[in-house]
């Protein structure tokens, strides 16, 4: 029996622009639940609110209305000073812009969450090499972020999100900067991680990436517009269904 790891209810987020105080609605009411061990993809046009959704789920941003419950706990109720530790222990976040620190080399960027969590050095030495090897970044560990390619940065960001084996992995277009071979490797890694019991919520524009998920959420103009479950389909069939749904979505727009 599965437990609801993430419950999102009536989530709204309205940005107020710094100048002029104009209100920009980014999320206008999103509700869904994610069971422990699920692998879900989020798709939608650029600007539809996917990054905003992930940020609010990760408590990087506060919702304007609605609640996010992680393992039954309302993230809005977590005090500010515990938030960082809470996030570290429960969430792994792969940022769309990678957000690597240029004062650290690749190794230290990946190890950052472990160091912050006060893990032992033996544990770091045990965990890092296999992960780096799987992501194909084992031989650039000594380099600095400005010395490596965009794809290598992205894989570094993924490694950082995975290093503490968090229960929920939030990935914002983790294959966006990757060629098809490295993105296959990355998706396999996510599959593997998911098979091990970790929950994944991944934003993607790629149908192929989405087809790895067990479920796809479609977002449009800040609302959950449509959902697909993979059920017993194999990846190929699911790929087809996602493509169709996207076409229908685009068609819906031209109609509306």
């Amino acid at each position: 029996m599965t437990v609801a790891l993430l419950e999102v209810e009536g989530l709204q987020k309205t940005y107020t622009t710094r100048y002029g105080g104009q209100a920009v609605p980014a999320l206008t009411g999103v509700s869904f639940t994610l069971e422990e061990g699920q692998f879900a993809a989020v798709m939608g046009e650029s600007g539809s609110g996917k990054t905003t959704l992930l940020n609010v789920v990760a408590a990087l941003d506060r919702p304007t209305a609605g609640t996010v419950r992680l393992d039954g706990r309302d993230t809005a109720a977590v005090p500010e000073r515990e938030l960082a530790a809470f996030r570290r222990e429960n969430l792994g976040f792969v940022f769309q812009e990678f957000n690597l620190l240029d004062t650290f080399d690749i190794r230290d960027n990946i190890l950052l969450p472990m160091v912050l969590a006060g893990r032992s050095r033996q544990e770091m030495e045990r965990t890092l090499p296999p992960l780096a090897k799987k992501l194909g970044i084992a031989d650039i560990l000594g380099k600095y972020p400005y010395e490596v390619s965009g794809g290598q940065k992205q894989r570094t960001a993924v490694a950082r999100a995975l290093i503490l084996s968090p229960r929920l992995i939030l990935a914002d277009e983790p294959t966006g900067a990757l060629d098809s071979r490295s993105s296959d490797a990355l998706l396999e890694l996510l599959d593997e991680v998911n098979a091990g019991g970790q929950t994944v919520l991944m934003v993607t524009h790629s149908v192929k990436a989405a087809s790895h998920a067990g479920r796809v959420l479609f977002i449009k103009d800040g609302t959950l517009y449509h959902q697909l479950f993979r059920g017993d389909d194999d990846r190929g069939r699911f790929y087809g269904r996602i493509s169709d749904a996207l076409t229908a979505l685009a068609g819906g727009r031209s109609d509306g």
């Binding site: 000073r81 960082a84 976040f93 969450p113």
Partner: peptide, 15 residues
């Protein structure tokens, strides 16, 4: 910039 990133990758404000 560094501040913003550190916040996002899970360092607490105090640290």
């Amino acid at each position: 910039e560094r501040f913003a990133v550190m916040r996002q990758v899970g360092m607490d404000e105090g640290l």
